[in-house]
Simulated scan of single mutants.
Amino acid sequence: MSRKVVAAYFLSLDGVAEGADKFLTSWDDETDAVGGRLISTQDTVIFGRRTYDEFAGFWPTSDIQPFADFVNAVPKYVATSTPLATQWGTAQAIEGELTDFVRDLKEQPGGDIGIHGSISVTQALLAAGLVDELSLVIVPTVVGTGRRLLDNLPQISLEPISSSTTPSGHLLVDYRVNHSG
């Protein structure tokens, strides 16, 4: 059985994934617990270059748990065409095509492969049929502008796995990507 690729995002109600720190203005224990459960099954992370650079400048000295310990310890692979300027743990640039790399990575032993905050990586892997699940925290805010996670993709069928609403009004939704059509 191959490993799952799970893309996790905070989205505004209108689908904006960019700059979640600007529209995610409330937090609660249930939202926190979902993140902890999500990363408990992951042992590898894939980033785009921009997200890697942002995270590498913040997470190595962060005490925001449990994500700081998780993201600092796991192997990190970065979709980039240039060498990494900042070294962060075992991070390494992906050699070759992203989709080929992920296809091969899914066949290696291990836990789930996480994508956290890399919109272009998620879009490319969704379009290639390589994302297995979407784990979304939908924030009850309309942002209006910004990059949307699901823009410019082919039709993709999703099956709901679970959904709930937190005290802060966040909609927690997990979807399985239906690869059969």
Rank of each mutant, 00 (worst) to 15 (best):
Y9H: 13
G110S: 11
I46L: 14
T25D: 06
G181A: 14
R37D: 15
R103V: 02
A8M: 11
L126I: 12
G36H: 07
A85Y: 00
S163M: 02
K4F: 09
R103F: 11
F47T: 01
R49V: 01
I94W: 11
E133H: 13
V16A: 03
G19H: 08
L158W: 07
F70E: 04
A68C: 10
P75F: 05
R50Q: 12
T141M: 06
E159A: 12
G89V: 09
S135G: 05
V45F: 11
Q155L: 12
A8P: 01
P60S: 10
G181F: 12
T90Y: 01
E133A: 12
I64H: 13
T90I: 00
E18K: 08
R37P: 02
A17I: 04
A93L: 06
S180E: 15
L11S: 01
I39H: 06
S180H: 15
S12E: 09
I64N: 12
S163G: 00
S135I: 03
V143P: 02
V6N: 08
L153I: 08
G36T: 04
D174M: 00
A73W: 08
L24N: 15
G57I: 02
Y52Q: 08
A93S: 15
Q123I: 05
E30A: 04
F101C: 06
D112P: 03
Q65C: 05
A93Q: 15
A79I: 08
T82S: 15
I138C: 00
P154R: 09
A93V: 11
P140C: 01
G129I: 04
V34K: 07
K4D: 12
P109Q: 12
L84F: 11
F70M: 07
R50P: 01
S168L: 02
